[in-house]
Design a protein around this nucleic acid. Structure first.
Length: 448
DNA sequence: TTGACTCAACATCCTTTGCTACAA
DNA sequence: TTGTAGGTTTCCATGTTGAGTCA
């Protein structure tokens, strides 16, 4: 008879099993709690009897189930179920990931923990569960601290509480699961004993390649659908337009000076900037070498000039003249805060950045939803986890070189509206011949 | 309870085009 | 001659968020 137990994120066992190591401190074999399922299966295969004291879950409540899934949502859940209730479902923004998650809870019928990156999402899940299951889930984070059989928690709170609650849930849902592989959050996944796992995201891939950890932490991608596959029926038809502009003579002169400074430094040190690693090398060097710091600063400034070029503002003026009318709702996206405020001042448009106070932000979003505001400008605050009212036109003035940001911004204009005839339109304004062009090229790598 | 702070964690950050020492 | 590894243990900037603290 093997005794299995849980202790502060660890799995303790009397006998050896793959994935466990002997610990002199505990006088037992130990491993991270997430090995629980594998260890259990191993002992079963070996026909070894187990006394299992790992999970200590709260009783599953009486719930209703008012969720009707669309065909692709049901299919996604089918594949996840077939994979042993483990794995990741990839659906574009607006395709109803939350509904899939809630339906999964009703299938598993066991105590469930839902991890979310922001308080906005904490509230959204809370409301949707209340509606769909006629049950008020617990909330931990954002000032709440209620542990219930179905509980929504922020990643940050989970990080500080996981030792204590790591064995209270048989099922765990990781919303926006691309956050999970980061240094700190991945420990949360390891310290949870939950044998059933579901990850939800629109874009699992990460710039740092740590998404390679996801199959181990959550399971493989079991279902994937792109925005273009849902366009027309469940999401709006859309078009992506690219408009190219040039730097002014002044900007060009400055830009080239700065790039030259960077190049001169690189060649003086026999360095190249041809990979992320080489860039990190430069950053490291900049920590102790003033010349390297100067070079990096030059790179930053040059980037800013190209992303926030004056011609973009003029092009934006034309676009607003053309599209700013009763029929359209427009969101303008910028890369940095300064540009967002410049646009706001120039065109007298309400602006939202991370500096905007909370109530002012919700006020602006409310008025945009009601149609009192037709155009708003935002930095990268709307990229994820915020419930943004529908728009049908997005204008990208600047951004990162990541397809994640691109797809998330696209998602902001894709919600299908009743009787809508016009296509949703995402317009990107790009400064040609500069790093801005490279950024744009990079964010289009992944097919939409 | 709020509001204003601070702090920590997370994310992005590259594409040009030439090295040098050593092993196979 | 050709091919390949090379060095450590992070962190120039800016943006964004959640949690904690203190008035």
């Amino acid at each position: 008879m093997v005794r299995l137990s849980y202790y502060k994120g660890l799995l303790l066992s009397d006998y050896y099993a793959p994935g466990l190591k002997w610990s002199d401190e505990f006088k037992k074999y130990i491993g991270f709690a997430y090995k629980y399922r594998d260890v259990l299966e191993y002992f079963k295969r070996e026909e070894i009897k187990i006394e299992d004291n790992v999970l200590d879950t709260l009783p599953f409540p009486m719930i209703e189930d008012k969720i009707t899934l669309r065909d692709y949502q049901a299919k996604a859940l089918f594949f996840w179920n077939r994979a042993g209730k483990r794995g990741i479902i990839v659906l574009p923004t607006g395709a109803g990931k939350t509904a899939v998650g809630i339906k999964a809870i009703t299938k598993v019928k066991a105590s469930t923990l839902i991890l979310v990156p922001t308080i906005d999402l904490l509230d959204q899940w809370y409301e949707k569960i209340k509606d769909a299951l006629n049950y008020s889930p617990g909330r931990i984070g954002g000032g709440y601290d209620e542990l219930k059989a179905i509980t929504v928690i922020t990643y940050d709170s989970a990080y500080t509480r996981v030792e204590e609650i790591g064995n209270k849930f048989a099922f765990v849902i990781f919303d926006e699961v691309h956050h999970l592989p980061s240094e700190g959050y991945s420990q949360v996944a390891q310290m949870l004993a939950s044998p059933y796992r579901l990850g939800l995201t629109a874009t699992p891939e990460r710039e740092d390649s740590r998404h390679r950890l996801l199959p181990d932490l959550v399971g493989p991608v079991v279902f994937r659908l792109r925005a273009s596959e849902l366009a027309g029926k469940y999401l709006a038809e859309f078009e992506i337009k690219k408009i190219y502009v040039s730097l002014t003579d002044d900007e060009k002169k400055k830009y080239e000076e700065l790039r030259k400074k960077l190049k001169q430094f690189l060649s003086s040190r026999n360095m190249q900037l041809d990979s992320l690693e080489s860039f990190h090398k430069l950053v490291k060097l900049a920590g102790r070498d003033p010349e390297a710091r100067e070079a990096l600063l030059a790179w930053h400034t040059a980037l800013r000039i190209s992303v926030n070029s004056k011609a973009k503002i003029e092009k934006l003026r034309e676009l607003l003249n053309e599209y700013n009318n009763k029929e359209n709702k427009i969101i303008i996206f910028t890369r940095d805060v300064e540009m967002a405020y410049n646009v706001s001042r120039e065109f007298l448009i309400p602006v939202v950045t991370y500096k905007t106070p909370k109530d002012e932000r919700s006020e602006i979003l409310r008025k945009f939803k009601e149609g009192k505001y037709k155009v708003i400008v935002a930095s990268s605050v709307f990229d994820e986890g915020v419930d943004i009212p529908d728009a049908n036109i997005g204008i990208v003035l600047g951004g990162y070189g990541t397809s994640r940001q691109m797809l998330q911004r696209l998602g902001r204009i894709l919600r299908k509206k009743e009787g809508e005839k016009n296509k949703a339109l995402l317009i990107e304004i790009i400064t040609k011949g500069t790093s801005d062009y490279n950024l744009s090229k990079r964010r289009h790598r992944a097919t939409v």
